[in-house]
């Protein structure tokens, strides 16, 4: 299990995370990221980590406790 965290001060609405994992990320009307689901399972880690690393401004983290 891991936790997804977003820094809204950094987000610029590039949308790479949404394209990579739209079950976890979306954008709101202002173009800022919305984390739809904070907890991700081990089997999803590759995909969600790739999505986080695709953020051009490093606004996303996937933290393992």
């Amino acid at each position: 299990m891991a936790l997804v965290k977003a820094d809204l001060d950094l987000c610029q609405g590039y949308a790479n995370c949404v394209v990579a994992a739209d079950d976890v990320f979306d954008l709101d009307d202002d173009g800022l990221v919305v984390v739809l689901r904070k907890e991700v399972s081990g089997s999803e880690m590759d995909r969600i980590s790739d999505a986080a690393r695709s953020c051009p401004v490093a606004a996303l983290r996937v933290e393992t406790p």
Binding site: G13, Y14, A15, V18, V19, D22, D26, L27, D28, G31
Partner: peptide, 12 residues
Amino acid sequence: VSWPRALVVCRK
């Protein structure tokens, strides 16, 4: 232009 939600639709 300055419309990220439209972009998401288009990228998919």
